[in-house]
Design a binder for these strands. Structure first.
Length: 594
RNA sequence: GGUCCGGUAGCUCAGUUGGAUAGAGCAUCAGCCUUCUAAGCUGAGGGUCAUGCGUUCGAAUCGCAUCCGGAUCACCA
């Protein structure tokens, strides 16, 4: 139980004893005491006067008195300012929390909650390399998977690859025309980039052809449909669907190149998947569910034979589920895939990490499954995140304004190298150690940058300004860890006489650190509940900041006396452990030196 | 037009179920390395919490209205 919860419970007990009033936890406002006042936590008394029939000051005094004498293990003293009951928590409470947090774990073993959750993320198209938007998606998905796992879930990380459709046919047709048999091997290019180049090539040619047609007097809309290369791509798609051998072989070959490229990128990102789904295998699913809906009279057929669901009663529109020609649409596949995921794993929850442009789609998907009475419908959650935009607006792959994921990672690592060289603190590192360090710092900066913001918010990324390594950043937190390791290395050799009883009062900064450490559990819980890694990023930054203040103010190795020295060493260990664990949840590693 | 999301310091963002004088980082300015790593620390300036009305002991937070920005409402995925 967290300290906040303990205080709330004690407060409720006090009120019950003194005023014979039963309060639920939400009815008692407890928060941290503002820095200008004495105390650690504050109970707000105003709303209690209804039943205490006393002025807030009076009831505050009574409750404060009661708490200190009945819970001396928690409360040391109290004071009252207006209607605020400020409570000072006993040092002994903090010290024993500190000791427990160190002995309890090195890997924070948590009890399983017995529930299974699937997190689907990344979900790329196979016609182009990953870009900055994917980075946000992948870091979010991977991090939320870590967070849920730490919260007791059994987590399955899934990736639904969009490997078929008109987009890949575009790359294929361009490669056939202009590729001259190029391969990743022959060009030395990463497979996903090579295929992406032909996607761009397709669009260039397509644009030219449209222009040509328009110049000859064709209407623009007609030209867009009639451009020869587009027709070829569409023919290729038909051939693909018919299972044409040659087409399938080319498709498999080019997708294979892309997968090799993606795998390299995933590896560098430090992410992995437990289950890969491919749309080429799932795109026909869902028709049976549509049948089911028709039988149950939940869906209806229009005259032309297309199938719809009417959601107007839920404040939404009618939604197409099957085309007149019987072919499926996006929603059809997603219905089928939701069922497939459940059949595969019998998951309790299914989280989709998808951009907020698909909020409506996800609402509709869940609603339809609920109407069908599917047992897994309630467990469907959308981790919706805002787009990453450039100062010029949205990224558009056709206009070449995307920030490539591989390029960005290269740049981050190069920046890490630049800073590291300038500072010259690790000149004794081998080349291998150096490149490992650059990787840790560069990726740490990138991940922290993308995860520190509430996922719901859209964010603007300015490629002109490189991502910072100072302030509210990954490297700042990593640096704090490295500093601590430096202290611990020095002290490791020394023998200390065990953990004493700690008679001396905690200094304010020592206490602040423990108070922050104590908040971790709550932060983790909120992060899991809200599906929001930024809560962890903020927590870790706050901890690092407090520690750095402490660090400049008090010496560990040259502490005032042996007791303080041992206490501070414990603090160091606890902070290091906590930083490592919490930014680990963000997929960020810590360096021993930097 | 309907629905949904957002608007907090020059910029990027925090701000728990309504609580005390709204907080960080960046940028700017002024300081701090003979001492455990200065990728750090301390201080200063910077605010009509989009606007108005309401709810109440108390509102950035809740309600209503308005303004601004975005997404979406495809036989695209």
């Amino acid at each position: 139980m967290s300290l906040l919860q303990e205080i709330r419970r004690a407060g409720i007990q006090a009120i019950k004893t003194l005023y014979h009033q039963e309060l639920s936890p939400e009815q008692l406002t407890v928060n941290e005491t503002k820095p200008d006042f004495e105390g650690d936590y504050t109970i707000v008394m105003f709303s209690l006067s209804k039943f205490t029939k006393q002025k807030p000051e009076e009831s505050g005094r009574a409750i404060g008195e009661w708490l200190v004498s009945n819970f001396p293990g928690i409360f040391q003293k109290y004071n009252i300012v207006k209607g605020f009951l400020n409570l000072t928590v006993a040092d002994s409470y903090y010290v024993s929390f500190l000791k427990n947090s160190l002995s309890e774990n090195t890997d924070k073993k948590r009890l399983s909650n017995g529930k299974k959750v699937m997190v689907e993320f990344a979900s790329p198209n196979t016609n182009k390399p990953l870009h900055l938007g994917h980075l946000r998606n992948i870091f979010l998905g991977s991090s939320i998977a870590n967070i849920l796992k730490a919260s007791g879930y059994n987590v399955i990380k899934a990736n639904l690859v969009n490997d078929r459709g008109i987009h890949i046919c575009k790359s294929m047709i361009a490669w056939l025309h202009y590729g001259n048999g190029e391969t990743p091997e022959s060009t030395g290019k990463k497979g996903d980039h090579l295929v992406g180049d032909y996607y761009v090539k397709f669009n260039d040619v397509y644009k030219e052809q449209i222009e040509h047609l328009v110049n000859k007097g064709t209407d623009k809309a007609v030209a867009e449909k009639e451009a020869p290369i587009m027709k070829e791509a569409q023919e290729l798609l038909v051939k693909w669907e018919q299972g044409d051998k040659e087409t399938r072989e080319l498709w498999a070959k080019m997708n294979g190149w892309v997968y090799e490229g993606f795998d390299e990128t995933y590896q560098r990102m430090g992410v992995s998947f437990d289950k890969m789904y491919y749309e080429s295998k799932t795109y026909l699913l869902g028709k049976r569910i549509v049948e089911e809906g028709l039988e149950k009279n939940l869906f209806f057929k229009k005259e032309d034979g297309s199938v719809w669901v009417d959601l107007t009663a839920d404040g939404l529109d009618e939604k197409l589920l099957l085309r007149a020609d019987g072919t499926s649409v996006y929603m059809t596949q997603d219905l089928g895939t939701a069922q497939l995921k459940y059949d595969d794993y019998h998951i309790d929850r299914s989280i989709y990490v998808i951009g907020d442009e698909q909020n409506y789609h996800m609402t509709v998907l869940k609603l339809i499954l609920q109407k069908l009475g599917k047992p897994y419908a309630a467990g469907i959650d959308h981790l919706s995140y805002g787009m990453v935009e450039l100062p010029s607006g949205r990224m558009k792959s056709r206009e070449g304004t995307v920030v490539d994921a591989d390029d960005l990672m290269d740049e981050m690592i190069a920046t890490a190298e630049k800073h590291t060289r300038e500072l010259g603190k690790v000149n004794d590192f081998s080349e291998k150690e150096l490149s490992a360090l650059y990787e840790i710092l560069g990726m740490g900066a990138a991940k922290f940058y993308l995860l520190r913001v509430n996922p719901k918010k859209k964010m603007v990324f300015n490629p002109e300004e490189s991502i910072d390594f100072h302030g509210f950043t990954g490297p700042f937190v990593q640096y704090t860890y490295a500093r601590i390791q430096s202290i611990l290395r020095k002290e490791e050799a020394e023998e200390h006489s065990g953990i004493p009883a700690f008679q001396q009062p905690l200094l304010p900064l020592e206490k602040s650190i423990i108070i922050q450490l104590e908040k971790f559990e709550q932060a983790l819980e909120n992060a899991a509940l809200e599906m929001d890694p930024s809560i962890i990023a903020n927590y870790a930054f706050e901890l690092a900041k407090i520690f750095n203040t402490f660090y400049t103010e008090h010496s560990v190795t040259k502490a005032e006396n042996e007791e303080k020295k041992i206490l501070r060493l414990l603090l160091c260990k606890a902070v290091a452990q906590d930083i490592s664990y919490s930014i680990g949840l963000l997929g960020i590693s810590v360096p021993e030196r930097m």
